[in-house]
Design a protein around this nucleic acid. Sequence first.
DNA 1: ACAAAAGTGTTTAGGTTACACCCATGA
DNA 2: TCATGGGTGTAACCTAAACACTTTTGT
Lengths: 221, 221
Amino acid sequence: MSPIEGNYPKPAVTVDAIVFTIREEQLQVALIKRGIEPFQGSWAIPGGFVRENEALEDAVKRELYEEVGAGGVYLEQLYTFGAPNRDPRGRVITVAYFALVAAENLRELTASTDASEAQWFALPEVPSLAFDHREILDLAVNRLHAKLEYSTIAYALLPPAFSLARLQRVYEIILDRPLDKRNFRKKILSLDLLEPTDQRSGGAHRPATLYVFKANQVTFF
Amino acid sequence: MSPIEGNYPKPAVTVDAIVFTIREEQLQVALIKRGIEPFQGSWAIPGGFVRENEALEDAVKRELYEEVGAGGVYLEQLYTFGAPNRDPRGRVITVAYFALVAAENLRELTASTDASEAQWFALPEVPSLAFDHREILDLAVNRLHAKLEYSTIAYALLPPAFSLARLQRVYEIILDRPLDKRNFRKKILSLDLLEPTDQRSGGAHRPATLYVFKANQVTFF
DNA sequence: ACAAAAGTGTTTAGGTTACACCCATGA
DNA sequence: TCATGGGTGTAACCTAAACACTTTTGT
């Protein structure tokens, strides 16, 4: 196995992930407070360097697990940012992902080696971010909105069995507008992706039918 | 400016571009025959290493100019491929782009330093490709199809002024199915993106009105 | 005058939107 | 029995699809 011919400059490569969840009836994003320079003390997207022989997705999953303790996520590559001066330490190219986690799969946000603190923020409360992370976040929000319309990613924000009302709330929270209940249910059911279970939701009032994703819809994103 | 802390492995970073054009009433893609190992003699997507202080897009444009002599292209980032063993020489992460060039902007394909030959291929004639380039090509074709439906990228394959019939042929060639002439014209004109000029197409028969993109639609992709 | 491409409307079908009331349950 | 969320149908509107003939030009 020959080395790379010539003497090409090698930038550092990181992965970053915008992690979304629905908490407190809001779309929230996980941020970490940087414990080291540059931008020490600033809020930033979780992420880190890619290890040798580590696939990009594996690197993201590792970082997500270490920094926000999130397992069982939907992961999708978002965009690669490589402006020569995006990191003051030198050339760093970052492959950004966006991730969706069901609130049920979250444990408390934990600090890690180079993150002094981790916290969920509703979008309007997101502070100014390190590096070009605001640009990455904006792109992720746009992508989330777009994909919600033509894909089934909303299901990644819910537990395996859920009521149609809860699914509708996910759409309403992300799109930030109310949806008509009858039309929503008609549309979702006409897609023929859901299967009613004989489980019913608990709570104080009339129990709702819980639905699950149909077994033959395994690759649903 | 401090160096990157720790001793992170640094993969090599390349950019590759799937370049599409419409030639001979077909959707064609530019490939180069590799002049060096690995995969010497195989066909591959044009691309190369990113230079220090060079933005990713600038690197793609440089490679495109060097290897396929294509200027004036529409460029869009496609996906970043980073499987640990995708290049036998070692870790190489590639940021793949897809590009659209109007046939009018093409000069003959030229060889460059590490490409012994460059050639256009219609999709059904594409030979087996080096590295994971077939996967990249397939992804680019899918993206092209998808974006054709909801964006205006088709215009990047045409000269500044064009007839509706020619625009329709672009759609038909890429989607590989005939479109209804009246419905197509109605739809395109209803989008209100085009402006008729007083130019008329030449040729043996009834001249067609040529249209241009409206000036206020500068950011049209 | 003929060949070839340009240009033009209407009808039908399907999907999206707007909208209001009864039902089941726990407290 | 009341408060709360679950569950249901229909009419109006709009967009997409199907479909054929006349016009203009060069030869």
